[in-house]
Simulated scan of single mutants.
Amino acid sequence: MRVLVAGATGVIGSRMVPLLAAVGHDVLGLVRPGRDTAALTAAGAEPVVADALDRDGLRRAVRRAAPDAVVHMLTAIPAEIDPKRLARDFAPTNRLRTEGTANLIDAAAGARIISQGLAYAYQPSEGLADEDAPLWRTGTPKQFVPVLEALVHLERLTTLAGGLVLRLGHLYGPGSIYAADGSFVRQVRAGKVPLVGGGNSVFSFTHADDVATAVAAALDKPDVTGVLNIVDDRPVPLREWLPELAAALGAPAPKKAPAALARLAVGSWGVAFMNGLRGADNARARLRLDWRPRYASAIEGLAAEAADGKAGAV
C-alpha cells in the first residue's frame, strides 16, 4: 500500500516511517519546501514536497504521489509550552488541524484518512473515558478552548471522509517533552514540577512507537473508522507517576502546591492539566485493531525512558 505520512519528520513520524516501510508499505513522507529530505529518504520514505497549508500546491503534489492512505500527524507544537499562553503556542497546530486537515482530505482524492486526535480532551469526570464520553464542553479552561475547537473540527472532517481518528494520550518517547532531554524532564530534574492541588489528573500516556504500531494495524483493517483511544492500559494519577519519575531520574521529590497559588503561575489550564484531567480507556482499540501498547503504564514506560537516557549519557 502507498502510504503518505504527513508529519513524517516529527516525534511520531520518525518512528512510524521506518516501521511502515519494514512491514512492506511504500511510504511517502510529506515535507515542506526547503526542508532537508536526506533523513526521510534514509528511513525508507519517498519525499513529497509541499506545504499542507498551500491547498493548490498540496493537491498537485499528493495527487501526483497517488497514495492509498494518508496519515495526518501534522503538528507545530513548540518544545516548551507556556500553559498561561496555550492558545498562542498551539495556534499553528490548530491551523494544521483545521485548514491543514481540509487540504489533506481534498488532496487525498478518496484515499483513506487516519488523523491524530487527543485522548485527554474528555469532560472531567469519574472513571476512564471511552470514545462515547463527551468532550470537554463545560468549565473548559479558556486557553484550551481553541485547541478543543480545532480538534473537534479535525474529527468531524476525518469521520465525514470515512476515516479514523486516533485519540492519543500524553506523547512520550524520543524527541518528546518526556524524553531524557525533553523540557518536562529537565524541569523535573530541577525540582520545578510540583503536585498541584493533590496531583489528581489521571494521565493516559502514549509512546510514539505505540502510535506507529496502531497506524500499522489500522492500515490492515480498512473497515475500522470513527475514533479510537490509543493509550496505555493503566492510566495513573499525576500524584503516582510524577514521584516515580523523579526517583528514576535521581531528582528531588516533587513539592506540593495549592491550586489557588499555582493558578497565578500557570493559569487555569496549567491547574487543570495537573489536577483535573480524565484518563481514557483503550479497550475498543485493543479489540478492533488487535493492538497492544508497548508498556502497560507510564510508570513502567517513563522509568524505561529514564534508564535509556542515563545509559546514553554514560
Rank of each mutant, 00 (worst) to 15 (best):
N103Q: 01
G191D: 04
Y172T: 00
T159H: 02
A161M: 13
P194E: 09
L157N: 00
K192R: 14
K192N: 03
N103K: 01
L195K: 03
P134R: 13
E99R: 09
W136S: 11
Q143T: 12
P124L: 07
S125V: 01
R112G: 08
Y122H: 14
G110H: 05
T98H: 01
R97F: 02
A107P: 07
G169M: 02
P194L: 11
D181K: 02
G110M: 08
L168D: 06
I113K: 11
R189K: 06
Q143D: 14
L118H: 09
A102F: 03
A150Y: 04
A107W: 02
D181G: 02
G127V: 12
P174E: 12
D181L: 00
A107S: 08
A190D: 14
F184K: 01
S176R: 02
F144Q: 12
P194F: 14
G199M: 00
G110C: 07
N94A: 14
I114D: 10
D106I: 00
A121F: 14
A119L: 12
A190T: 04
A121E: 15
R95T: 10
L168T: 07
L157F: 04
Q143F: 03
I114S: 09
E126S: 11
H170K: 04
G169A: 02
G100A: 03
T138I: 14
N94M: 14
L157V: 11
P146Y: 12
E99A: 11
G100W: 08
I177N: 10
N94K: 05
E99K: 04
G169P: 01
P141Y: 11
G197C: 04
G162L: 05
V152W: 06
L164P: 06
K192W: 00
D130T: 13
A102Q: 09
F144S: 05
A109Y: 01
D132Y: 13
K142Y: 04
N103L: 05
L168Y: 12
V147W: 07
E149H: 13
L164I: 14
G110A: 02
H153C: 06
L104Q: 00
I114R: 06
P141W: 10
D130A: 14
D132P: 03
Q123F: 12
T158N: 02
L148N: 08
P124V: 11
G163A: 10
Y172N: 02
I114T: 08
V193I: 14
A109H: 07
E149Y: 07
Q123W: 11
T93G: 07
D132M: 03
P124A: 07
G173F: 13
G173L: 10
A111N: 00
A111C: 05
I114M: 12
L195N: 06
T158H: 04
W136I: 13
V165E: 10
L195S: 03
P146K: 09
G191C: 08
V147L: 15
Y122R: 11
L118F: 13
V147Q: 06
S115E: 02
S125A: 15
W136D: 08
V185R: 06
V185S: 04
G182V: 10
R95F: 05
T98I: 07
V147A: 01
Q143R: 09
P146A: 05
Y120A: 09
R95S: 05
F144I: 11
A150C: 05
L96Y: 10
S183C: 05
G163P: 03
V193K: 02
Y122Q: 09
T98K: 06
R137V: 12
T138A: 14
T93M: 01
G162M: 10
